[in-house]
Amino acid sequence: MNMKNWLPILALWFVLPIYSQTSEMAISGRVTDVWDTPIPNVNVLLTGTQRGTQTDEGGWFSLNAQANEVLMFSSLGYGSYKLVVPETGEELKIILSPMVTELDEVTLKKRRRKTQKDILAEFPQNTNLVKTSRGVLNKERSSSSFQVISGKDLVATGPDFLSSLMNFNPSMRVVRVPEVKVYLRRFAYSTYDSIGTPPKAIFDVDGFIQETAPTYLSAHDIDRVAILERNAAISRYGPMGVGGVIVINTKSTSQRDYSEVVKQYDNSALRDSLNELFIDQGRNAPIPPE
């Protein structure tokens, strides 16, 4: 056989090994986390190419690849992983570890609790604050709701400021004979006294408690008024507040400098009187403020 006849055979002998080394094969496997939980939607990409796939709900994937190509596995929240395609074509087991994100340093500052002195300093600007003989009440932070009326809204009509104050509380009733008495709402008979009369409201005027209505004040003298009823009154004033409390801050005391005044209030006596009052009536006493 001459040389010309051997050339096709030699060419075929060199081509076959090359073709066998570059042929693709099916690659399959499963991607899980470190707890063996399957990870869906993992991107499986052959590096340097546009070929790839994603894992299914069970973490399984399958694609065609050549031996010694590099597979890149990546998923949001996990670190990436590279793997050289083995020549044997066995099923692959890929484990991705969660990606640890380094957080910025955060400094926590302890918030100092405001003292009575701090609260009093805010009084001129904070219209939700009311000074009482039991400390300063804050409408926004109180566990019981109550009304706060600005003295600017009181109209100087009628015999006294109570006539204007009634417009802000529809349940309020004023009896002027033989003396001025204020009733804030209708009460059950169990709250009446021994002679069958409902409890009347008391007044806390610039830190001084009085049972008689301060009709000597005009609407122009008042800076703000707070109307406390039910739990709001009883939790603060005990049995004397059963009929409600009308707290009045006049303009003269509102302009006073309280920067050096710090009053401490002991609620132990109030708590005892509350327990006695509600035990007699078979009810649960509200908790006085600390």
Score class of each variant (00 low, 15 high):
K93H: 12
I94R: 02
I94M: 03
I94G: 03
I94C: 01
I94S: 03
I95G: 03
L96A: 05
S97Y: 11
P98R: 02
P98H: 00
M99Q: 14
V100G: 00
T101Q: 10
T101L: 13
T101D: 09
T101M: 11
E102W: 04
E102T: 10
L103A: 10
L103C: 01
D104M: 11
E105D: 07
E105W: 02
T107M: 10
L108P: 03
L108W: 10
K110W: 13
K110F: 15
R112T: 13
R112L: 14
R112Y: 09
K114M: 14
K114S: 09
T115A: 01
Q116G: 15
Q116P: 13
Q116S: 11
K117P: 04
K117G: 09
K117N: 06
D118G: 02
I119A: 04
I119P: 02
I119D: 00
L120D: 08
L120E: 08
L120N: 05
A121D: 05
A121G: 05
A121C: 04
A121P: 06
E122M: 15
E122G: 05
E122D: 15
E122I: 05
E122F: 05
F123A: 15
P124K: 02
P124G: 06
Q125G: 05
N126V: 15
T127V: 11
T127G: 04
T127H: 14
T127D: 13
L129H: 08
L129F: 09
L129C: 09
L129I: 08
L129K: 07
V130Y: 05
V130P: 07
V130L: 15
K131F: 15
T132L: 07
S133W: 08
S133E: 11
R134Q: 12
R134T: 06
G135S: 03
G135A: 01
G135L: 00
G135I: 03
N138Q: 06
N138E: 09
K139E: 12
K139Y: 02
K139H: 12
E140Q: 14
R141H: 12
S142H: 12
S142D: 13
S142T: 06
S142W: 01
S143R: 13
S143E: 10
S143T: 08
S144A: 14
S144E: 15
S144D: 15
S144N: 14
F146A: 07
Q147P: 04
Q147C: 07
V148A: 06
V148E: 01
I149C: 06
I149S: 02
S150V: 00
G151S: 03
G151A: 01
G151N: 00
K152E: 14
K152N: 15
K152Q: 14
K152S: 12
D153G: 02
V155D: 04
V155Y: 04
V155C: 02
A156R: 12
A156C: 01
A156I: 06
A156F: 11
A156P: 06
A156T: 09
T157L: 11
T157C: 07
